[in-house]
Protein backbone atom coordinates (compact mmCIF):
# COMPACT_ATOMS: atom_id res chain seq x y z
CA UNK A 1 0.00 0.00 0.00
CA UNK A 2 1.22 3.50 -0.77
CA UNK A 3 1.40 6.08 1.97
CA UNK A 4 -1.01 8.98 1.64
CA UNK A 5 0.60 10.83 4.53
CA UNK A 6 4.26 10.94 5.41
CA UNK A 7 5.70 13.08 8.20
CA UNK A 8 9.42 13.06 8.86
CA UNK A 9 11.07 14.87 11.77
CA UNK A 10 8.38 17.49 12.19
CA UNK A 11 9.15 20.21 14.73
CA UNK A 12 6.72 22.97 15.52
CA UNK A 13 7.00 25.91 17.84
CA UNK A 14 4.50 28.60 18.69
CA UNK A 15 5.85 31.78 20.34
CA UNK A 16 9.11 29.94 21.00
CA UNK A 17 7.29 27.17 22.86
CA UNK A 18 7.80 23.72 21.40
CA UNK A 19 4.42 22.10 20.62
CA UNK A 20 5.58 19.13 18.54
CA UNK A 21 9.09 17.71 18.50
CA UNK A 22 10.53 15.23 16.00
CA UNK A 23 7.17 13.80 14.98
CA UNK A 24 7.30 10.91 12.52
CA UNK A 25 4.18 9.32 11.09
CA UNK A 26 3.22 7.44 7.95
CA UNK A 27 -0.34 6.53 7.07
CA UNK A 28 -1.20 4.06 4.29
CA UNK A 29 -3.92 5.03 1.81
CA UNK A 30 -7.39 3.65 2.47
CA UNK A 31 -7.04 3.24 6.20
CA UNK A 32 -8.74 4.75 9.24
CA UNK A 33 -6.18 5.82 11.81
CA UNK A 34 -6.90 6.91 15.36
CA UNK A 35 -4.76 9.76 16.62
CA UNK A 36 -4.92 9.29 20.36
CA UNK A 37 -3.65 11.55 23.08
CA UNK A 38 -4.65 13.53 26.14
CA UNK A 39 -6.02 17.04 25.83
CA UNK A 40 -3.15 19.36 25.01
CA UNK A 41 -0.90 16.59 23.67
CA UNK A 42 -0.79 18.27 20.25
CA UNK A 43 -3.43 16.38 18.25
CA UNK A 44 -5.20 19.45 16.93
CA UNK A 45 -1.93 21.21 16.17
CA UNK A 46 -0.73 18.19 14.20
CA UNK A 47 -3.97 18.17 12.19
CA UNK A 48 -3.71 21.89 11.54
CA UNK A 49 -0.17 21.37 10.27
CA UNK A 50 -1.14 18.46 8.02
CA UNK A 51 -4.05 20.41 6.55
CA UNK A 52 -1.84 23.42 5.85
CA UNK A 53 -3.78 25.79 8.14
CA UNK A 54 -0.75 26.05 10.41
CA UNK A 55 2.64 26.43 8.75
CA UNK A 56 5.39 23.87 8.79
CA UNK A 57 8.37 25.84 7.48
CA UNK A 58 10.57 22.88 6.77
CA UNK A 59 8.36 20.91 4.36
CA UNK A 60 8.43 17.79 6.51
CA UNK A 61 4.81 16.85 5.77
CA UNK A 62 3.94 15.08 2.54
CA UNK A 63 0.36 14.36 1.45
CA UNK A 64 0.10 12.33 -1.74
CA UNK A 65 3.62 13.45 -2.72
CA UNK A 66 2.84 17.17 -2.18
CA UNK A 67 4.78 19.13 0.40
CA UNK A 68 3.57 22.71 -0.11
CA UNK A 69 0.81 23.93 2.19
CA UNK A 70 -1.19 25.32 -0.72
CA UNK A 71 -1.17 21.95 -2.50
CA UNK A 72 -1.99 20.07 0.67
CA UNK A 73 -5.07 22.23 1.30
CA UNK A 74 -6.52 20.82 -1.91
CA UNK A 75 -5.88 17.23 -0.79
CA UNK A 76 -7.04 17.40 2.80
CA UNK A 77 -10.49 17.95 4.28
CA UNK A 78 -10.10 19.11 7.87
CA UNK A 79 -13.06 19.28 10.22
CA UNK A 80 -13.08 22.95 11.07
CA UNK A 81 -14.92 23.68 14.27
CA UNK A 82 -16.72 26.63 12.59
CA UNK A 83 -15.28 28.92 15.24
CA UNK A 84 -14.85 31.69 12.70
CA UNK A 85 -18.32 31.28 11.24
CA UNK A 86 -21.07 33.80 11.88
CA UNK A 87 -23.36 32.31 14.51
CA UNK A 88 -26.38 34.09 13.01
CA UNK A 89 -25.80 32.61 9.56
CA UNK A 90 -28.15 29.96 8.27
CA UNK A 91 -26.54 26.57 7.63
CA UNK A 92 -27.46 26.88 3.94
CA UNK A 93 -25.36 30.07 3.75
CA UNK A 94 -22.36 28.37 5.37
CA UNK A 95 -22.75 25.47 2.92
CA UNK A 96 -22.81 27.92 0.04
CA UNK A 97 -19.58 29.57 1.26
CA UNK A 98 -17.98 26.17 1.65
CA UNK A 99 -18.95 25.24 -1.90
CA UNK A 100 -17.36 28.42 -3.24
CA UNK A 101 -14.23 27.84 -1.21
CA UNK A 102 -13.79 24.19 -2.16
CA UNK A 103 -14.38 23.19 -5.80
CA UNK A 104 -14.19 19.51 -4.72
CA UNK A 105 -17.34 19.88 -2.57
CA UNK A 106 -19.85 17.24 -3.76
CA UNK A 107 -23.29 18.82 -3.34
CA UNK A 108 -25.24 15.62 -4.03
CA UNK A 109 -23.27 13.67 -1.45
CA UNK A 110 -23.68 16.52 1.02
CA UNK A 111 -27.46 16.34 0.61
CA UNK A 112 -27.37 12.59 1.29
CA UNK A 113 -25.37 13.19 4.45
CA UNK A 114 -27.76 15.95 5.55
CA UNK A 115 -30.74 13.65 5.06
CA UNK A 116 -29.03 10.77 6.87
CA UNK A 117 -27.97 12.97 9.80
CA UNK A 118 -31.39 14.68 9.86
CA UNK A 119 -30.05 18.23 9.68
CA UNK A 120 -32.24 21.22 8.91
CA UNK A 121 -30.30 23.67 6.73
CA UNK A 122 -32.82 26.48 7.35
CA UNK A 123 -31.64 26.74 10.94
CA UNK A 124 -29.06 29.23 12.09
CA UNK A 125 -25.73 28.02 13.41
CA UNK A 126 -26.44 29.30 16.92
CA UNK A 127 -29.67 27.27 17.07
CA UNK A 128 -27.86 23.95 16.77
CA UNK A 129 -27.35 21.64 19.73
CA UNK A 130 -23.81 20.44 20.33
CA UNK A 131 -24.62 17.11 18.67
CA UNK A 132 -26.17 18.74 15.60
CA UNK A 133 -23.25 21.11 15.29
CA UNK A 134 -20.87 18.13 15.25
CA UNK A 135 -23.08 16.40 12.66
CA UNK A 136 -23.08 19.50 10.48
CA UNK A 137 -19.27 19.69 10.67
CA UNK A 138 -18.99 16.00 9.71
CA UNK A 139 -21.33 16.47 6.73
CA UNK A 140 -19.31 19.46 5.48
CA UNK A 141 -16.01 17.64 5.98
CA UNK A 142 -17.02 14.36 4.34
CA UNK A 143 -18.73 16.07 1.39
CA UNK A 144 -15.39 17.22 0.02
CA UNK A 145 -13.84 14.72 -2.39
CA UNK A 146 -10.23 14.42 -1.27
CA UNK A 147 -7.79 11.60 -0.48
CA UNK A 148 -7.32 12.54 3.19
CA UNK A 149 -9.84 13.53 5.86
CA UNK A 150 -8.87 14.85 9.28
CA UNK A 151 -11.59 14.57 11.90
CA UNK A 152 -10.70 16.39 15.09
CA UNK A 153 -12.56 15.05 18.14
CA UNK A 154 -15.79 14.42 16.20
CA UNK A 155 -17.52 12.85 19.20
CA UNK A 156 -16.48 15.26 21.90
CA UNK A 157 -19.33 15.95 24.27
CA UNK A 158 -22.20 14.46 22.27
CA UNK A 159 -24.82 11.85 23.09
CA UNK A 160 -24.68 8.19 22.11
CA UNK A 161 -27.28 8.40 19.36
CA UNK A 162 -25.51 11.26 17.59
CA UNK A 163 -22.25 9.39 17.94
CA UNK A 164 -23.72 6.29 16.29
CA UNK A 165 -25.11 8.35 13.45
CA UNK A 166 -21.76 10.01 12.83
CA UNK A 167 -19.89 6.70 12.93
CA UNK A 168 -22.37 5.18 10.48
CA UNK A 169 -21.98 8.13 8.14
CA UNK A 170 -18.20 7.75 8.20
CA UNK A 171 -18.49 4.05 7.31
CA UNK A 172 -21.15 4.68 4.69
CA UNK A 173 -19.51 7.57 2.84
CA UNK A 174 -15.80 6.81 3.09
CA UNK A 175 -14.64 5.54 -0.30
CA UNK A 176 -12.26 2.59 -0.31
CA UNK A 177 -9.18 4.62 -1.20
CA UNK A 178 -9.96 7.57 1.08
CA UNK A 179 -7.97 7.82 4.30
CA UNK A 180 -9.24 9.16 7.60
CA UNK A 181 -7.22 10.40 10.54
CA UNK A 182 -9.49 10.75 13.53
CA UNK A 183 -8.47 12.21 16.87
CA UNK A 184 -10.05 11.31 20.16
CA UNK A 185 -9.12 11.20 23.78
CA UNK A 186 -11.84 8.67 24.53
CA UNK A 187 -10.77 5.58 22.61
CA UNK A 188 -13.78 3.40 23.28
CA UNK A 189 -15.90 5.47 20.91
CA UNK A 190 -13.93 4.59 17.85
CA UNK A 191 -11.93 1.43 18.65
CA UNK A 192 -13.89 -0.75 16.21
CA UNK A 193 -13.48 1.70 13.36
CA UNK A 194 -9.73 1.81 13.39
CA UNK A 195 -7.17 0.04 11.26
CA UNK A 196 -4.38 1.40 13.39
CA UNK A 197 -3.58 3.90 16.11
CA UNK A 198 -0.91 6.53 16.64
CA UNK A 199 -0.41 7.72 20.20
CA UNK A 200 0.77 11.26 20.73
CA UNK A 201 2.26 12.25 24.05
CA UNK A 202 4.64 14.94 25.26
CA UNK A 203 5.04 16.46 21.77
CA UNK A 204 5.94 13.12 20.16
CA UNK A 205 4.20 10.31 18.35
CA UNK A 206 5.33 7.71 20.87
CA UNK A 207 3.73 4.59 19.42
CA UNK A 208 1.93 3.30 16.36
CA UNK A 209 0.29 -0.11 16.01
CA UNK A 210 -2.30 -2.03 14.01
CA UNK A 211 -5.56 -2.28 15.97
CA UNK A 212 -5.95 -6.02 15.37
CA UNK A 213 -2.31 -6.67 16.32
CA UNK A 214 -2.90 -5.01 19.69
CA UNK A 215 -5.81 -7.37 20.30
CA UNK A 216 -4.30 -10.48 18.75
CA UNK A 217 -0.69 -10.33 19.90
CA UNK A 218 -0.90 -8.31 23.10
CA UNK A 219 -4.37 -9.50 24.15
CA UNK A 220 -5.21 -5.90 24.97
CA UNK A 221 -8.04 -3.58 24.08
CA UNK A 222 -7.02 -0.40 22.28
CA UNK A 223 -7.89 1.47 25.44
CA UNK A 224 -5.59 -0.74 27.59
CA UNK A 225 -2.80 -0.18 25.12
CA UNK A 226 -3.31 3.56 25.09
CA UNK A 227 -3.58 3.84 28.86
CA UNK A 228 -0.47 1.70 29.37
CA UNK A 229 1.51 4.13 27.24
CA UNK A 230 0.30 7.09 29.23
CA UNK A 231 0.73 5.46 32.62
CA UNK A 232 4.01 3.77 31.73
CA UNK A 233 5.46 7.12 30.76
CA UNK A 234 4.66 8.69 34.12
CA UNK A 235 6.94 6.23 35.89
CA UNK A 236 9.76 6.92 33.48
CA UNK A 237 9.53 10.67 33.62
Amino acid sequence: MTDILNIQHLNYKLNLVSILADVNLTVPAGSIVGLLGANGAGKTTLMRLISGVAHDHHNTITVADQTSAAQRKQLVSFSHQLDGANNHARLSQIVHDYQVLYPDFAAAQFQELVAFLELDLHKRLQQLSKGNRKKFIIALTLARQVPLYLLDEPFDGIDGMSRKKIIASILQWKTDDATILISDHHVDDIANLLDSVAVIKDKHVVATAQAETIREEYGQSIEDYYEAIYEGGKQND
Binding site: G30, S31, I32, N192, L193, L194
Partner: peptide
Protein backbone atom coordinates in the same frame (compact mmCIF):
# COMPACT_ATOMS: atom_id res chain seq x y z
CA UNK B 1 -19.26 -5.47 2.46
CA UNK B 2 -20.11 -1.83 3.14
CA UNK B 3 -23.55 -2.82 4.37
CA UNK B 4 -21.97 -5.31 6.79
CA UNK B 5 -19.55 -2.62 7.94
CA UNK B 6 -22.39 -0.22 8.73
CA UNK B 7 -24.55 -2.92 10.36
CA UNK B 8 -21.73 -4.21 12.57
CA UNK B 9 -20.14 -0.74 12.98
CA UNK B 10 -16.67 -1.83 11.99
CA UNK B 11 -14.13 -0.80 9.43
CA UNK B 12 -14.57 -2.10 5.86
CA UNK B 13 -11.02 -3.48 5.91
CA UNK B 14 -11.87 -5.58 8.97
CA UNK B 15 -14.95 -7.04 7.25
CA UNK B 16 -12.80 -7.70 4.19
CA UNK B 17 -10.26 -9.61 6.26
Amino acid sequence: IRQLAVTLTVNVNTIQR
